[in-house]
Design a protein around this nucleic acid. Sequence first.
DNA 1: ATCCCACCTGGAGCGCACTCCAGGTCAACA
DNA 2: TGTTGACCTGGAGTGCGCTCCAGGTGGGAT
Lengths: 125, 125
Amino acid sequence: MSFYSPGETAEKSGFSIDTLRYYEKIGLLSGIARNASGRRVFSDDDLQWLEMLRCLRGTGMPIAEMLRYSELARGGDETVQERLELLQEHDRRVEEQIAELRTRQEQIQWKIRLYSGTLCEGLPA
Amino acid sequence: MSFYSPGETAEKSGFSIDTLRYYEKIGLLSGIARNASGRRVFSDDDLQWLEMLRCLRGTGMPIAEMLRYSELARGGDETVQERLELLQEHDRRVEEQIAELRTRQEQIQWKIRLYSGTLCEGLPA
DNA sequence: ATCCCACCTGGAGCGCACTCCAGGTCAACA
DNA sequence: TGTTGACCTGGAGTGCGCTCCAGGTGGGAT
């Protein structure tokens, strides 16, 4: 079991120190330990939790919903069902998101081919 | 060739009327016709352009870059090369975006399986 | 004639998710 | 002993992309 300074944690988690502080303030991070002089000390568990937060944020989950998830996580075993449903619902939205991105991307690629064609036409034979 | 009121255009394009006005104001939409009483009249061409804008916005292109693209589009044939490069670069970013979403989604799905497992264990035999 | 409704304008306001700042503390190193 | 640098706090500020508002106009139905 290792411990990490805010700076290390920022680097490992990909969140800025300011964001870590912000997440603690709003309740996305709870029970972060402090050393004798009041500085934050992050554990491996904290890092794992941050990785989860990264997955959720990185797939577009709004902070408010992540907050809900954190509350459930704090609630222990009784909330597993609810957490499961929340993640499944989110997973569905991510799927849709990817599908829409693909569709839009195809249209953009179509346009790219069109432009490429235009350029070729202009070429000397 | 048909013409469309702002309301129709909003419905067809998926942008709100306010957003259409905003886009015209900042220069993403140019040369939108007006009728005798000053109201906007959108053409099929405008609608096609809006569809393109939707693709770009919907895949996360920032307004500033769309503005760049619009300027190029107004520049005529000489800018085809540049437009091509812009779209290709964007296409690359969309690809990355999708890849990251997939990675994150897999981690979330792993978590979902974990929760499902937890629930099954608790089941009576 | 009057009412309504869709539209017009310039400009203010909003929600989100950070990000920055001023002023302070503490530990380590020169 | 002084300086540096990483960290602390509460709170203000930022950037983006809209979204809303007040006050006004014009055209068609009643």
